[in-house]
Design a protein around this nucleic acid. Sequence first.
DNA 1: ACAAAAGTGTTAATCTTACACCCATGT
DNA 2: ACATGGGTGTAAGATTAACACTTTTGT
Lengths: 230, 230
Amino acid sequence: MKIDQNIKIAVDAIVFGYTENKLNVLLIKQKYGILKNQWALVGGFVKDKESLNDAVNRELQEESGIKVNYLEQLYTFGDNIVRDPRFRVVSVAYFALVNSTKLVLKADSDAEDAKWFSINELPNLAFDHQSILETARNRLQSKLTYQPIGFDLLPKEFLFSELENLYCTILEKEIDRRNFRKKILSFGIVEETEKFGNKIKGRPAKLYRFNKLKYNQLVDNGFLFDINFA
Amino acid sequence: MKIDQNIKIAVDAIVFGYTENKLNVLLIKQKYGILKNQWALVGGFVKDKESLNDAVNRELQEESGIKVNYLEQLYTFGDNIVRDPRFRVVSVAYFALVNSTKLVLKADSDAEDAKWFSINELPNLAFDHQSILETARNRLQSKLTYQPIGFDLLPKEFLFSELENLYCTILEKEIDRRNFRKKILSFGIVEETEKFGNKIKGRPAKLYRFNKLKYNQLVDNGFLFDINFA
DNA sequence: ACAAAAGTGTTAATCTTACACCCATGT
DNA sequence: ACATGGGTGTAAGATTAACACTTTTGT
């Protein structure tokens, strides 16, 4: 059986970071082609002998040198058959979270420049990357409430106020500080360390740590992480 | 820029139906190729000038003649690079729900036979369709609790006991009849009709109808459908 | 002593759970 | 009159939501 089909498969990654109470996305300035100098998501074509997963990881490595904490398939964009002006491309988009606080980006082979952009100050994006980004943002918002993925955007040890702020920022909601802390602590998956953060102002704040092992154990026993707010 | 890539894109559909308190899946017996006579999901290759969505709908039409009530993209399977023994195929899987009570299947061009199988009595499946099906089943289970998709498996007018049974069957849980009814009715999206179902035994049961319009209105005002059980 | 952020409890309201009896029909 | 499934209410327990003052530090 001969299949006459001329469609290319690409992978794209939406990489979210969180610094200074802002949600950021990693973008790459295109180095070649008719889209030269346009900003785009990390991504590229899949090789013949490479799984989709390997492809995203390779692109992340090549274009940014980044190591992500969380990666999952988001959605496959293939309904707009002219999304890429060169030829038909179906793009499998991935959703990634990274602790960007101590991260050094490298601009490598395919990209001229790799940079973090606040989600609220985005440049014009190549292809249909704007709408992919919207999809990713929705996924982040909803997943934040039923999976402990917020921790993947923070350093290993973090302040409670940072966690709280992350939730407020991403969900675009006010959250009662006391109720939030009570709820999170009631799960028993976040533990106090002996250390203190280096705040300049106010009372020193303890650092906390997410216990992933404990979380996995609880999940095995039917535990469901869940944060709902009015 | 020339891309040397030789991967084919297919779409597959997991079509769920519900009859006589059983969850069923639509399978197709392959007519051609080395997989002749094996059972497989509805699916096929995407055409060059056809959106992914059009491709699934076409395959559903061609192979089963079915009209689905609900269709959404499920997941893209492309990590197993030898999932199809002939050449590399990346498959975009779709998840479909249909009211199968009055449905006539047609076996058409590509398929010898189209048949419903109870989810508990599946034959061996071609390719990695077994694992795709697992993914779909998980999606169905989780989505049932936070989206009103159960109605897409039932006729327009249905008995409360059918709805309840559907939830019990798919979630594999016992559900308190009174609490279930109370909860569903409290949403105000299911309304009583004047008609009665034609039960043979017991007290006649009213038929109910899902008011999709009302549901959409409520959603616009921030309503969240949600059924949680212990 | 004051500014700044951290840390902490209680109460009312709401939602969830558990549970059992009467009703309308066909035979 | 009995068998079968349909229809209904209530009370105890758990969860959520609303709300403000004290603590620790640096200046």
